[in-house]
Amino acid sequence: MSLFKAHYNLEKKSIWLVIGIIAAASVGGLVEIAPLFTIDQTVETTPDMRVYTPLELAGRNIYIREGCYACHSQMIRTLRDEVERYGPYSLAAESQYDHPMLWGSKRTGPDIARLGGKYSDEWHAAHLNNPRDVVPSSIMPAYSWLAETGLDVSDLGAHLAALRALGVPYTDAMIENASTDALAQATPDSDAASGVAERYGETTNMRRFSSRKTVTELDALISYLQILGQMTQTAYTAEPKEVE
């Protein structure tokens, strides 16, 4: 048992005790930091990865503001039941532009990592207005004010700039036109709409996301929900892992 008496020496020499504490505590840090050195090997490459448009980003901010993440995860795990229910498991690269990430840790409602395109905009509008109109047994809260609240686009440029500082490849033109682009994406017949397609690609969802005449928070949130899992096609096209 003399090994267990060794700490007497440490306890009597405080400088060694401090060094010992630092050594023990840094294990926690190492465990979190060391894997970052192998990130090239563990995170997939996604050449087709796109960025959030300003409207989708506004929707994402509303998703955070309303606390949707408290009930919905965006993280499909590598388990058969999850993959069969929701679709391909989530890849690290899919949330590379997510600051902060919204993986969540609790599922009161279903995972929505692959929600984009699963339902129509009309369904989302009806569901967010009052979930029980479409899913009678739902316990999700109603978010009826979203359709009544005009979307504030004034600070979207600053949001894009902040994300660029964190490594999201927004261009100067994207930052400059963020407010106009946000409104134009939901008003496809406006003059500014061509700019959105030019900056964010022809495949951007350009349409009215709800039946309101002006662009509301509901439009922004639906535009975000409709691209979940669609930021890159890597997860869908990746070769299934070899089975030995």
């Binding site: 590598t78 993959v83 069969e84 070899e242």
Partner: peptide, 14 residues
């Protein structure tokens, strides 16, 4: 062990 390989095997078996 590798979760992705395990999953592929699970799905293949099913």
């Amino acid at each position: 062990v590798d979760q992705k390989t395990d999953l592929a095997a699970d799905i293949a078996a099913a």
